[in-house]
Design a binder for these strands. Structure first.
Lengths: 214, 214
DNA sequence: TAGATTGTTAATCGATTAACAATC
DNA sequence: TAGATTGTTAATCGATTAACAATC
């Protein structure tokens, strides 16, 4: 039974890792695991794992550990992965195409319902079974399908106007791949900025710091 | 002049955001900014920004603020963006192709020197001017070019063996896009796991938590 | 029962924020 | 000089770790 008070974002961000690892254990046919074993594999402390899981309920059995199958399901439920939230993707360039075809949205709680672009070279193409629609049909589509999440794969310059347009349509959740932060603009929006450039720069710093001359 | 004792990773992870934002200011021709203005734009506290920057030196002028141009350059130097570390990319599938063609490696401190795949359908193709090489030529290529970083865009099942192979060649830095954590295996390696699935699941949780019935 | 491992509270650690003296 | 804003120390807050009682 969930406890749910104020669960911190740092706990939430660890849940997918637990889930991913438990899925792998399940595939291997492992049925039982202790917090100590888990901690060794994930590079965390056993304490932290028990603490994290206990935010949501007592999923373990004292003296025994956790049942992989059950824990995996529980975490999936906590994350809401069975919900199939409707998503649209804007920008069918390199990255947009890769995201649309590479990700397993259904396994992660979403359903990709539409892809939009403004380029005549893109419109009409099929990506992973979904036809790329003209940006001008965005409002009509959203009124009909009512997606809750938008994946932004457009250039930096376009994001500002685009997010305003999507916000006006009623979309409050953004998965943003552009090199631009949209978090501050809409206080009631859920934003996940995936800044691949930031990630690269962080790596660059670490290499530099690890190098002898540094 | 740098101070450099033990700078925490949370500080480092904010540097690219500062850098990105300052670049934008510079483009707009803005020459001066205070920590208070920056904090408002980035959704941080002014205190934190001053604290962060002071880990590396006193880049500001009391009573005046920070000179955009200068601060931008300083942060670029701290990150080491001018270093052009040699990188290779393994796996020329959807995501690999997108990463190779979409990212501006040189702006982020790297130089993409090679792309590898084992599929005959991929080998020989050109992506962003770089020909896809046969995986069997990996060792010879690395002995010659000596890349320091590997971008992993291969399926989950392949990562384990691949990272061992790369580690044996001498590569200690991994930008990993597969759904598999490689951090724990090599204690002396620099690993940046980009788990797009985890990011999606986190969004899923947040939508669920924000929904009325939750 | 004895052994093991969780659930949970208390202690520690680190990161963020607040405050203010230094100084441009 | 007066006003503004940094650099830096001290206070607070939150997250992680340690410890142990509960219990399977």
């Amino acid at each position: 039974m969930p406890k749910r008070e104020n669960i911190s974002m740092s706990v939430i961000r660890r849940l997918p890792r637990y889930y991913r690892f438990l899925t792998q254990l399940r595939e291997k046919g492992i049925t039982r695991i202790s917090s100590t074993e888990l901690s060794a594999k994930l590079g965390l402390t056993a304490s932290q794992i028990r603490q994290d899981l206990n935010c949501f309920g007592g999923f373990g059995q004292q003296g025994y550990g956790y049942i992989v199958e059950q824990l995996c399901k529980e975490i999936g439920n906590i994350l809401g992965l069975q919900n199939g939230y409707k998503a649209i993707l804007i920008g069918a360039g390199n990255l947009g195409q890769a995201i649309a075809s590479h990700m397993s949205f259904d396994a992660d709680g979403f359903l990709l319902t539409g892809i939009f672009d403004s380029s005549p070279f893109k419109i009409g193409n099929k990506i992973n079974g979904i036809e790329v629609s003209d940006m001008s049909t965005l409002e009509a589509f959203c009124a009909r399908v009512k997606p809750v999440m938008a994946i932004l794969c457009v250039p930096r310059e376009a994001v500002d106007a685009l997010s305003d347009r999507l916000y006006a349509i009623g979309i409050r959740c953004f998965w943003n791949f552009s090199h631009y932060d949209i978090a501050v603009k809409y206080p009631d929006a859920i934003v996940e900025n995936v800044h691949l450039n930031d990630s690269l720069m962080t790596l660059c710093y670490q290499i530099k710091s690890a190098s002898p001359q540094a």
